[in-house]
Design a protein around this nucleic acid. Structure first.
Length: 697
DNA sequence: TATCCTCGAGTTCA
DNA sequence: CTCGAGGATA
């Protein structure tokens, strides 16, 4: 099975017997995965892994022509006919386009170079004209119109024979059932395109499935595939599908009253005129440079598209040149698909380490064999807690699926099914803290293990200092983890007040700390002394007291001593403070050493305005709740947050019915779709600035 | 008591 | 960004 196949060995290596055995193993594996994917709609490995094994097999077959077999998965388009749906032979076979996963520009350059060579063009000749299209992640579909009426819709199947899914396709609103009578439509017209599911539709569907206790879908493509191949079109109608047209199948020849087009682009425009959705991004591109530009543009827009694309497609525009270029076996020589790096890959789980956080929480971290996922090399991924590891069933040495979805943070999604060559014990949390050796406990009903060492634990002490220096706390620029490591390890800093005893001599003695940066840090420390009560309270790092709670406390009590001396009952009076937070605060300030730290910090010159703030004039956004998401063009999120809060708005982290506005920048994710679903007004940065000025966008 | 809504905390890589 | 859990609310 998969774990025994060495995918990295050179194709030319090994004896012929080895190669034969491997080829056989790879074929069996691919056939099984294809079955799971197409027939059971339940893939066990990510597409990227399938592609990798497929390419390995291709390479082997190329190196050993004697192993060639018409039965090999590389020799046919994999597909399977589901029982219950009628098989239909395509009038014109549905071919696949050659797919490349090279990096960046090289793919477009290589394609252009190949085309020019085939056409016998000199470097001095004008650039070749191409059409560039996004490559949708859905299912290819053939729509047959006779006399302008939709008579049959078929899936691709194996390229020769597909399945009749007309009853389901009729539920898709974007697909015309009848072409306009006044338009000149060939007597027979087959339109080809991709059926897909929009991301917001997918999210809504999964929420619905979850609420109904049904199974949820892994991704929009699987959901679309399942929907299209239903026997009961009532079910399909509940699953919102969409369509983009990109090509033709059989068309009545001109001689018999049909049509043809000089260029691919003209044909697409005709399809659009007939009422078929054609992707808005489709464009004509001259030469390799414009193809590269298109690829980059799509890569940047990709996250905001509202539907999944897994790459781009380049096609020679001129019909005449297409005919001249012709086909290699089953693939047109005049088109190529250029895929983006996979968002999911398989790699080996080499180990599980344990990290200690600021609150003492022990976090298991997966150490992975480096793997290229979604454009970056990933070597670490969080496994959150022991239960998470159990749930996913991963153990050291397993082949695991690493995912980098819409967000940035990689996660271990699960393991590739298979037998472990040898027994591996399940992961268990250490009994003692790996950093300080204190006992590790897990409170009843809690998922997390914690180190009991407190500030005695070096890991926690370092995190406490970093938290104090945090941008939204005391904002000490330049005091990062590397510097804190050195300061704490060398014993220069034992507690927060020591920070203000730092001198230029101590600092510049450290690694990677020249005089200039040392001075910067000292200056940042100096200016951090003037702060606000809320920032200071937040910076102390009291459990359950985050930024907003610190603000509430500052507003309620006005002065620090009132907070320090407050009883649990008094604390409970504060907005959003319940028994857990109140106890946490009370316990913190009951500890003499904590009070001492506070006094020493004050003695070191840390100060703030303690006067109860005068009632501010009515603020323009008072009572408004605003949520930020994505990357704003000219300002950081923190900056936007401060602006909004200064105007009296409440900036919240998640969208709900109570949200008045969502300010969305580039790469906005789930919050944007949620806002659209709830009908929350979505603003861009410019509209937000108008809101700040006039109280309305 | 159950359910929303928020907040806190942890997290990766270039 | 996502999770878990605290707090408010019905």
């Amino acid at each position: 099975m998969a774990e025994n196949i060495d995918l990295f060995a050179s194709p030319a290596s090994g004896t012929p017997q080895d190669a034969a055995a491997e080829v056989q193993a790879l074929r069996a594996q691919l056939v099984q995965w294809a079955h799971e994917y197409y027939v059971q709609d339940a893939p066990t490995v990510p597409d990227g892994e399938y592609d990798r094994v497929y390419q390995r097999l291709e390479a082997l077959e190329k190196a050993h022509p004697e192993l060639h077999s018409p039965e090999s998965p590389t020799q046919r388009v994999i597909g399977a006919i589901l029982e219950g749906l009628t098989p239909v032979r395509h009038a014109v076979p549905m071919l696949s386009i050659r797919t490349e996963t090279d990096n960046e520009a090289s793919g477009a350059q290589a394609f252009d170079a190949r085309i020019r060579k085939e056409l016998g063009l000199d470097p001095g000749d004008p650039p070749v004209e191409y059409v560039a299209e996004p490559k949708f992640d859905g299912l290819a579909m053939n729509l047959r119109y006779e006399a302008g009426r939709l008579v049959q819709a078929t899936t691709r199947g194996d390229g020769e024979v597909g399945e009749d899914v007309t009853h389901n396709i009729r539920t898709i609103r974007q697909i015309p059932l009848q072409l306009r009578a006044d338009a000149a439509v060939p007597p027979v017209l087959e339109v080809r395109g991709e059926v897909y599911m929009r991301r917001d539709d997918f999210d809504a569907l999964n929420r619905k499935q979850e609420a109904a206790g049904g199974k949820t879908f892994v991704n929009p493509r699987n959901a679309a595939a399942g929907a299209v191949r239903q026997l009961d079109s009532n079910i399909t109608a509940q699953r919102p599908l969409s369509f983009f047209a990109y090509g033709l199948g059989e068309v009545t020849p001109v001689a018999q009253g049909g049509m043809q087009w000089d260029s691919h682009y003209a044909m697409l425009m005709q399809l659009r005129a007939w009422g078929f959705p054609v992707a808005p991004q489709v464009c004509v591109a001259k030469g390799a440079d414009e193809l590269v530009a298109f690829h980059q543009r799509m890569g940047a827009e990709r996250a905001n598209l509202g539907y999944e694309i897994d790459g781009v497609v380049y096609k020679v525009n001129s019909r005449a040149l297409q005919l001249e270029l012709g086909f290699v076996s089953r693939e047109p020589r005049w088109a190529v698909a250029h895929k983006y790096p996979a968002q999911e890959m398989v790699t080996r789980l080499e180990g599980i380490e344990v990290q200690v956080g600021r609150t003492g929480k022990l976090t298991p971290v997966a150490r992975l064999a480096p793997v290229f996922v979604g454009g970056v090399t990933v070597t670490n991924a969080t496994l959150s807690n022991v239960f998470d590891i159990r749930k996913k069933g991963v153990r050291v040495g397993d082949d695991v699926i690493v995912r980098r979805a819409g967000d940035v943070i990689p996660e271990v999604a699960g393991r590739v099914p298979g037998v472990r060559p040898q027994y591996v014990p399940n992961f268990s949390m250490p009994r003692q803290c790996p950093v300080c050796g204190s006992d590790v406990v897990r409170e009843k009903g809690e998922a997390n293990h914690r180190c009991t060492g407190g500030l005695f634990c070096v890991a926690q002490r370092k995190e406490a200092i970093l938290h104090y220096a945090h941008r939204r706390a005391m904002d000490i620029e330049g005091l990062g983890d590397k510097l804190v490591d050195q300061l704490v390890d060398s014993g220069v800093i034992r507690s927060l007040p020591d920070l203000y005893k730092l001198g230029i001599a101590t600092l510049s003695g450290l690694e990677r700390m020249a005089e200039k940066s040392a001075q910067n840090v000292l200056a940042a420390l100096e200016s951090s002394k003037k702060t606000t009560l809320a920032r200071f309270v937040f910076g102390l790092g009291i459990r359950h007291v985050g930024e907003s709670t610190a603000k509430d406390l500052a507003k309620h009590f006005g002065v620090l001593d009132a907070i320090m001396d407050a009883s649990v009952e008094e604390l409970l009076q504060v907005n959003d403070v319940g028994p857990v937070v109140a106890n946490s605060l009370h316990t913190f300030f009951a500890q003499p050493h904590n009070r001492e730290v506070v006094e020493q910090l004050r003695a070191a010159g840390v100060h703030w305005d303690e006067a109860v703030p005068a009632e501010k004039p009515a603020q323009i956004l008072a009572g408004m709740t605003v949520v930020l998401t994505g990357t704003l063009p000219t300002m950081g999120r923190d900056e936007a947050k401060d602006l909004l809060e200064a105007a009296g708005a409440k900036v919240s982290g998640s969208v709900s019915k109570k949200t008045h506005y969502l300010v969305a920048g580039a790469d906005a994710g789930s919050k944007l779709s949620k806002a659209q679903e709830l009908g929350v007004t979505v603003l861009d940065e410019a509209a937000m600035l108008r809101l700040l000025q006039h109280g309305a966008p």
